[in-house]
Amino acid sequence: MISLISPVETWAHRIPAGAKLLALSALTVALFLTDRPAVLAAATLAVIALYLSAGTAFLRQGARHLRMLWPFLLLIALWHGLTGQAQAGIVIALRLLAALALANFVTMTTRLTDMIAVLTWVLSPLRRLGLPTRAVTLAIAMVLRFTPMLVENGQRLALSWRARSPRRPGWRIVVPMAALALDDADHVAEALRARGGILNDIPDGRN
């Protein structure tokens, strides 16, 4: 499973993940607190400059991640064009762009392991309350293991269906897929138990 991290190595990759996430939260809140078009325009330009500082290839990549915004930008343009509140429309559009681009920037420049380290750190106070935080990191690894397995099982079942039926399986394939998956999950639970299960006093990912 590939993460959305950028293959273009940038200066931002070297900044600690925690610092980036903290800055992101503060800036996102700030974006939603202001209504001044000039401030938001400046913020959007600053975000573009941020992407550019990592190179044009990186900027292009970032732009691709913003594609999902187009229908909404179009909607805002139509709506505010018709009602004649252009300024309000610009405020909304700029805010959407800046907030999403900023969040994507952190994702694109932070390694999965660093993100997981931040997550375990955030969860660590819960350990004192008896929550098995190691179970969380284990569960994350398991999802990464199960997802391609489910997809493969689904494809195998669809093949087996098509080998014996002229019609396409459609949603019906989900039933045997889920049944198979539940059996597999129980077997993996047994495998986990065979290797000690969820032991809470074992050190987690951080050395």
Binding site: M142, V143, F146, L150, A181, L182, A185, A189, E190, G197
Partner: peptide, 14 residues
């Protein structure tokens, strides 16, 4: 415990 956890992970994967 293990069983619950693998099932939760399984549905996240689903």
């Amino acid at each position: 415990m293990e069983r619950n956890m693998t099932r939760i992970a399984l549905f996240a994967a689903l």
